[in-house]
């Protein structure tokens, strides 16, 4: 198998860099491959390439050199560089951001708990205490303090549960202060999220899917 292969697929042109090859050699072959295509006529539309590196993970410098090769030809550009493998550290971070943490126990006034990912809170959050996470917050315990989801800027995070006694709800950078006036709409089977006006709204749980689909459409 040669070091560099050009393929056409449904998604467009794909350049596969053989993961068993020497990178320097593959880079040279890539250049000749591009030259062979006789591109350069300025009339054509820009052609996009996806580069697949198989089981090889390119370092930052290697990605840069690949990109500079393409930069010499204004008619072609890189859509994406994809590898079958992931950096271990990146994977760990990804796992952390996607896991559900279960927290019990009492969070007292002046104490602050910080998490990554989603949190299922079964404990008691006292007045003056704060619980914060990067993902969504699912609350089954009593809360009288500040609940922060989607810290610092994840607007698709939501807060679920009985929140009528909470002091504040915070999602991403939006803060909702709970007063006597709005507390009664925050009883069980509700969830709080960021709506299209970028403020916190509360809805019934049965509407969750619908609301979140809307929200996702906006963020994409």
């Amino acid at each position: 198998m040669s070091n560099v292969t050009l393929k056409g697929s449904k998604e467009g042109f794909v350049v596969i860099i053989n993961d068993g090859s020497d990178f320097e050699q593959a880079l040279k072959d890539l250049k000749t491959l591009i030259l062979k295509q006789n591109i350069g006529s300025t009339d054509d539309d820009v052609i996009q390439f996806t580069i697949k590196t198989g089981n090889r993970l390119l370092t930052k410098e290697q990605r840069k050199t690949v990109k500079t090769v393409f930069k010499n030809y204004p008619q072609i550009e890189i859509k994406d560089i994809i590898s079958n493998v992931e950096d271990k550290q990146d994977v760990e971070e990804l796992l952390k951001a996607n896991k559900m943490t279960i927290e019990t126990g009492i969070v007292r006034s002046g104490q602050k708990l910080e998490f990554e990912g989603d949190v299922l809170f079964l404990g008691v959050l006292h007045e003056g205490a704060k619980i914060s996470t990067t993902g969504s917050m699912y609350i089954l315990g009593q809360v009288e303090g500040i609940v922060q989801a989607g810290y610092p800027d994840n607007t698709s995070a939501a807060i679920f549960g009985n929140l009528e006694n909470a002091a504040q709800l915070r999602i991403a950078d939006v803060i909702e202060i709970i007063t006597e006036d709005n507390a009664d709409k925050l009883h069980n089977h509700q969830f709080a999220y960021i709506d299209e006006m970028h403020s916190i709204s509360v809805d019934d749980l049965q509407d969750y899917k619908e609301v979140m689909n809307e929200s996702r459409k906006r963020t994409v």
Binding site: R108, S109, G110, Q111, E127, G128, A129
Partner: peptide, 12 residues
């Protein structure tokens, strides 16, 4: 009571 809560947190 709120201050006591804070203190209990520190003591714990």
């Amino acid at each position: 009571v709120s201050d006591a809560d804070r203190v209990v947190g520190i003591l714990e």
